[in-house]
Lab assay of single mutants.
Amino acid sequence: ERVRARYDYEAQNEDELSFKKGDIITVLEKDDGWWKGRNGKEGLFPSNYVEELE
């Protein structure tokens, strides 16, 4: 599954994923509120910062 970033997100910890608004992220795992994904790097990000691609 792929999602698009709705906002910029700056990683707060080294296991998190940074991205810019409009970036496409491949979702690897979904957990409550935090998803694991890849966009060149791999890490956790808040699920409310992304939207599913149509």
Score class of each variant (00 low, 15 high):
residue 40 G to L: 09
residue 15 D to G: 14
residue 19 F to N: 01
residue 3 V to F: 11
residue 29 E to H: 14
residue 6 R to I: 15
residue 26 T to F: 11
residue 19 F to E: 01
residue 32 D to V: 10
residue 8 D to Y: 04
residue 37 G to I: 00
residue 8 D to S: 10
residue 6 R to T: 10
residue 11 A to Q: 05
residue 44 L to P: 01
residue 2 R to K: 14
residue 3 V to H: 08
residue 49 Y to A: 13
residue 20 K to E: 06
residue 11 A to P: 06
residue 1 E to V: 14
residue 7 Y to N: 07
residue 32 D to H: 11
residue 23 D to L: 02
residue 22 G to Q: 03
residue 9 Y to P: 00
residue 14 E to Y: 09
residue 18 S to G: 06
residue 52 E to D: 13
residue 25 I to T: 01
residue 12 Q to H: 09
residue 42 E to M: 12
residue 9 Y to C: 06
residue 14 E to R: 08
residue 26 T to C: 11
residue 25 I to N: 04
residue 17 L to V: 06
residue 9 Y to V: 03
residue 40 G to Q: 10
residue 19 F to H: 00
residue 25 I to V: 05
residue 4 R to H: 05
residue 34 W to Y: 10
residue 16 E to C: 06
residue 47 S to W: 10
residue 21 K to D: 03
residue 40 G to E: 11
residue 1 E to Y: 15
residue 52 E to N: 12
residue 13 N to D: 08
residue 10 E to G: 06
residue 3 V to K: 05
residue 46 P to V: 02
residue 18 S to Q: 04
residue 26 T to P: 04
residue 43 G to Y: 01
residue 21 K to R: 11
residue 3 V to W: 15
residue 47 S to P: 14
residue 50 V to P: 02
residue 54 E to F: 13
residue 25 I to Y: 01
residue 8 D to I: 02
residue 54 E to P: 13
residue 25 I to F: 08
residue 34 W to E: 02
residue 51 E to I: 08
residue 41 K to F: 10
residue 29 E to M: 12
residue 4 R to A: 06
residue 15 D to T: 13
residue 27 V to T: 02
residue 14 E to P: 15
residue 22 G to N: 07
residue 29 E to G: 12
residue 27 V to I: 12
residue 44 L to H: 11
residue 15 D to R: 14
residue 35 W to A: 01
residue 35 W to T: 05
residue 27 V to W: 02
residue 26 T to W: 11
residue 47 S to M: 11
residue 41 K to H: 11
residue 52 E to A: 15
residue 51 E to D: 09
residue 31 D to T: 15
residue 50 V to S: 03
residue 54 E to R: 12
residue 43 G to R: 01
residue 50 V to T: 07
residue 42 E to N: 06
residue 15 D to M: 14
residue 51 E to A: 06
residue 33 G to R: 13
residue 3 V to A: 08
residue 29 E to V: 11
residue 20 K to I: 07
residue 1 E to L: 15
residue 37 G to L: 00
residue 37 G to R: 02
residue 14 E to V: 11
residue 21 K to S: 09
residue 36 K to L: 15
residue 13 N to L: 06
residue 42 E to A: 09
residue 51 E to T: 08
residue 16 E to Y: 08
residue 21 K to H: 07
residue 25 I to K: 02
residue 27 V to F: 02
residue 45 F to P: 01
residue 22 G to W: 04
residue 28 L to R: 02
residue 13 N to C: 12
residue 40 G to T: 12
residue 8 D to A: 09
residue 2 R to N: 09
residue 15 D to I: 10
residue 34 W to N: 04
residue 39 N to F: 15
residue 47 S to A: 14
residue 11 A to H: 01
residue 17 L to I: 13
residue 37 G to F: 00
residue 24 I to Y: 10
residue 20 K to T: 07
residue 31 D to G: 15
residue 25 I to Q: 02
residue 51 E to P: 02
residue 40 G to A: 09
residue 42 E to H: 06
residue 20 K to R: 13
residue 32 D to L: 10
residue 42 E to Y: 08
residue 52 E to V: 13
residue 33 G to N: 14
residue 26 T to I: 14
residue 20 K to Y: 07
residue 29 E to L: 11
residue 15 D to K: 13
residue 39 N to C: 13
residue 1 E to F: 15
residue 36 K to S: 04
residue 10 E to Q: 13
residue 54 E to C: 13
residue 20 K to V: 09
